[in-house]
Nucleic acid binder design. Sequence first.
DNA 1: CGAACCCTTGACAGAAATCAACTAAGGTGG
DNA 2: CCACCTTAGTTGATTTCTGTCAAGGGTTCG
Lengths: 231, 231
Amino acid sequence: MRDSELPAIRRLPLFRTMSEENFLSLTSAAYVQTFPPQVNLIEEGALPDFLHIVTEGAVEMFAGWNRRETTMAIVRPVSTFILAACIKDAPYLMSARTLERSRIILLPVGDLHSIFRRDPDFAMATVDELAACYRGVVRQTKNLKLRSARERLAAYIMRKSAEAGDAASVVLSVEKRLLASFLGMTPESLSRAMRSLQDDGAKIDGQRVIITDRAALEALARPSRLIDGPD
Amino acid sequence: MRDSELPAIRRLPLFRTMSEENFLSLTSAAYVQTFPPQVNLIEEGALPDFLHIVTEGAVEMFAGWNRRETTMAIVRPVSTFILAACIKDAPYLMSARTLERSRIILLPVGDLHSIFRRDPDFAMATVDELAACYRGVVRQTKNLKLRSARERLAAYIMRKSAEAGDAASVVLSVEKRLLASFLGMTPESLSRAMRSLQDDGAKIDGQRVIITDRAALEALARPSRLIDGPD
DNA sequence: CGAACCCTTGACAGAAATCAACTAAGGTGG
DNA sequence: CCACCTTAGTTGATTTCTGTCAAGGGTTCG
């Protein structure tokens, strides 16, 4: 593992509070691997063997049914994924694949469980992490059920802008077809929705979205702390 | 509190493993209340004050945005709700109202937190519970994004039938408009979807759904353990 | 240079929401 | 006890939204 990686992982809320001893014993058993883009890391239905951590690159969480597929999340460094499956020792509900060349740390579930059982601080941190994940998915469900595709796109742009300090222009960090799938629509619909947002204060130029009328866009997106976060 | 209630709560996975002492101290501080139908128990955006438990009746979890409203879940006895918000001490993401006359046990979050911190078994149970909740919402999201309204209805019927031991007939336990909202459609769409399922092996008769051709219905719903559970 | 692949656009089809009218059931008050 | 009112559910007509199919432009990469 690289020098910078361990501290970066240690800084994650999930690992910040646990004892140094346990942290070292957990990470010393870890595997580190670098994967090219488009490599399947985990497949839904399989049983968990490692808690995954991305330290470089990007990972897509996706799920399939009946020859259809949808993007559930995009995980960027430094983050863990599939914690819940590891905890429950139950089949993955999502698959994961690399989007770019990515470095992945793999923590064996066995070690995770044993340390989890004897380090109360780690258990607490796990509770907090899972509660946060849960709330994240609840937000996503509200977003899907309460907003139309156009509204979801507008809200996404507002959110990205807010994350960049209310920037007037945001750069899409993922392929549009991926964003479309994440937002629950087809690439064609996203393309049209983008175009139609010109009348609502947002212009698209390649990978860059320029907010031309923040008030108009906000009127459409109606951002809400209870859907779009950040808490 | 009634004689039968405490044991029933104790039997919940969340409370089963904690020490008797802590369980008694937690529940002795509890409030018990009976509410008529259509009473708002909690409102999204507010800060958590009690962990709620339904012991009788039924509770609807719902969420609103921009004059729209959607049913997120229906909670039946004996179950807890809004655990995640209590743990994180963060604003509710959902509102709750009684559907019928309901008995609700209220556990003050303060007691919850303090016992949570000193009872490792309770902390473990909380982790398990949250992981299960998380996986539940992930399933719901997959259901919404991967299946059409008709397919969701078919899957819902299959699921209800499976829960009743593959019964050929199931009784809808909630109002249709509520079911529609839960499944992410309008009452009109649900009505039409029900009717259209006659060609796919399910007939509706009032509150009762009769599965006339299980194979056909299954071909439409394509139930998957990774969406419809039970794990 | 060619072969993928992504994105866009157009035409069309299908799904689902909306608007409106009507029925039936249940509860209320005279 | 009955007329009335409210509400859930259904149905029809229509609009809106979104997906599908097909084609073409542009880019990247081997």
